[in-house]
């Protein structure tokens, strides 16, 4: 295992070391100590390595991740796993606003609560939140799955496209064009897999499914150019 002291060696050295790892690297497990809320930790990784961050992080941790598994043993600041492409990001604590924003793929697991705008404009990422999520989550979400074991805040799924939203608890309000939808067997199957990947012991039957009513301007073919 490689241990990296962020306070002593600095952010650029850390990310350069992580970027230097090839697909067949032997340095497969990294531990980052003294993160102290720093920004942009383990951003832009593209190798099948495991990175354990021993503490809380600031803005944009694990952004643009490909292949790597990033595990934050603490809470994460705004924009964690933003624009993730593949791989896995796990947050033991809470995540601040716009966690998993614009993510194209991979899995983001938040074991605490997520703040506002979780999964905003998500494009294929799967996000599993053990706790609650804040307002305007999954705003303009295009594809992928958002699973919330707790409650959702105001305006969930506003202007949604094709993403699936599963919420176990209450939803404070639904955003424009977001509606509750029937939970069919295929959805329970998808949800069971997501819950297993997220390490949740919740049962798929306890959740409700929300999605797009497809009534907004963009869904009307007469408005196409």
């Amino acid at each position: 295992m490689q241990t990296f002291d962020l306070e002593a060696e600095g952010l650029r050295a850390l990310n350069a070391s992580l970027h230097a790892q090839a697909a067949d690297t032997n340095q497969t497990v990294w531990e980052i100590v003294n993160p102290k809320g720093s920004h942009a930790i383990a951003v832009g990784l593209d190798a099948p390595i495991e990175v354990n961050v021993k503490g809380s992080t600031g803005y944009y941790c694990a952004g643009m991740n490909k292949q790597a598994t990033v595990h934050v043993h603490g809470s994460a600041g705004p924009g964690v796993a933003e624009n993730m492409m593949s791989g896995m990001v796990v947050i033991d604590g809470d995540a601040s606003q716009y966690a998993g924003a614009t993510g194209h793929g991979g899995t983001l697991v938040i074991k605490g609560n997520a703040s506002s705008r979780c999964g905003i404009s998500m494009k294929g990422i799967d996000i599993i939140v053990h706790g609650n999520i804040g307002h305007m989550s999954a705003f303009m979400a295009q594809s992928g799955n958002l699973v919330v074991c707790g409650d959702a805040g105001d305006a969930l799924g506003d202007s949604l496209y094709e993403a699936r939203l599963f919420v176990r608890g209450s939803v404070k309000s639904l955003g424009a064009d977001c509606i509750e939808k029937e939970m069919r067997p295929e959805h329970l199957e998808i949800l069971a897999d997501l819950l297993a990947r997220g390490g949740c012991d919740a049962k798929p039957e306890e959740f409700r499914r929300y999605g797009s009513a497809r009534k907004l301007y963009t869904f009307n073919i007469d408005n196409a150019y």
Binding site: K36, G37, S38, S56, G58, Y59, S75, G77
Partner: peptide
């Protein structure tokens, strides 16, 4: 209170 967690570490 901090704008960021960094301020509190």
């Amino acid at each position: 209170f901090g704008s960021e967690y960094r301020a509190l570490v």
